[in-house]
């Protein structure tokens, strides 16, 4: 799925400004950004809820509109359902709106009931369910028509660890079947462990886009972690400066054109008892903060 300079304006607010990026097929894709960055607007454009002012979105090379709604499964951040309906009826209704036949829809609902330990839920009313239980129902409603693209907006918010784990397992299961999954969240550390690729937007603009590993490498700042056998002061050297020293843990910054080998050599020459040495890669959070700061300084 490709976004080509997509823009959207709400009155005074430029919600999206020339946003371009691509989501590879079958990816676990993170859509990141702080609150109010334009994530929800972007998702709403992807899901055809609203239209873009300009720019285009292509899915497998063709305009998105030509596909209808069927291939997308969308779970919004604010989970909502008809509170007075029964679980089974609601799922049946939503599934049939997605174009499933009654019999098919029933089969799949029962399949998911079994999979998620929800036997006997058919006649329960939505309003009798706890929040976590409602979220399960919502998840089924999102995947019941077997979408090839799944968009999850803050899927874990409000879930207890057990249910979050269940949901995560199901998401990975779907991913393994080749379904493209888009996560939208402002909690970057969550994405780091799940997603392979991300796009990071802020104030309607793309800040970062690419594979998580590449991004980290591109934004590393020559910081290294050192652990010694026992606490002690490191010998001063033009090769590095000590950023933090905590007992026998140190963070070192490699100065100028010095290489890691030179640094290690120097340490060993000074008889520093090295136990551990590794490169420190920035977290997405740090990269984001760094970029936002940089942007405001300019």
């Amino acid at each position: 799925m490709q976004f080509q300079s997509v823009s959207k304006r709400f009155g005074e607010l430029q919600a999206l400004d020339q946003v371009s990026f691509a989501i590879p097929r079958g990816a676990m894709f993170g859509l990141l950004g702080p609150n109010g960055a334009g994530k929800t607007t972007l998702i709403r454009i992807m899901t055809n809820i609203i239209g873009a002012d300009s720019g285009s979105i292509l899915y497998e090379g063709k305009a998105l509109d030509s596909y209808g709604f069927g291939f997308i499964g969308y779970m919004p951040e604010e989970k909502g359902m008809y509170k007075k309906m029964k679980v089974g009826e609601l799922l049946l209704y939503l599934a049939r709106l997605k174009g499933l036949s009654k019999a098919d829809a029933k089969d799949r609902i029962h399949y998911w009931f079994q999979r998620l330990d929800m036997d006997g839920w058919w006649s329960k009313k939505i309003q009798e369910l706890s929040k976590g239980m409602q979220q399960k129902v919502q998840f089924i409603a999102t995947v019941i028509h077997e979408p090839s693209l799944l968009i999850l907006d803050e899927p874990f918010s409000g879930l207890d660890p057990v249910n979050a784990e269940v949901l995560k397992k199901e998401i990975f299961h779907l991913h393994s079947k080749g379904i493209t999954i888009v996560f939208s969240t402002h909690r970057m550390e969550q994405v780091e462990e799940i997603c392979e690729e991300i796009v990071l937007i802020n104030k309607g603009k793309v800040l970062l886009n690419g594979a998580v590993a590449d991004l980290k490498n591109n934004h590393k700042k020559n910081i290294y972690y050192l652990k010694t056998d026992e606490p002690g002061s490191l010998p001063p050297s033009p090769l590095f400066s000590v950023l933090t020293a905590n007992d026998n843990h140190y963070q070192l910054h490699l100065e100028g054109d010095a290489t890691v080998n030179q640094l290690l050599q120097s340490l060993l020459n000074h008889q520093v008892p090295v136990r551990e040495f590794s490169e420190v890669l920035p977290s997405l959070n740090e990269i984001f903060i760094q970029l936002v700061k940089g942007a405001t300084h300019e």
Partner: peptide
């Protein structure tokens, strides 16, 4: 109003 305040409308609008 029920659809709007319960927020199901977003699910619905992504379908119809």
């Amino acid at each position: 109003m029920e659809e709007k305040t319960s927020r199901i409308v977003e699910v619905m609008i992504s379908t119809v």
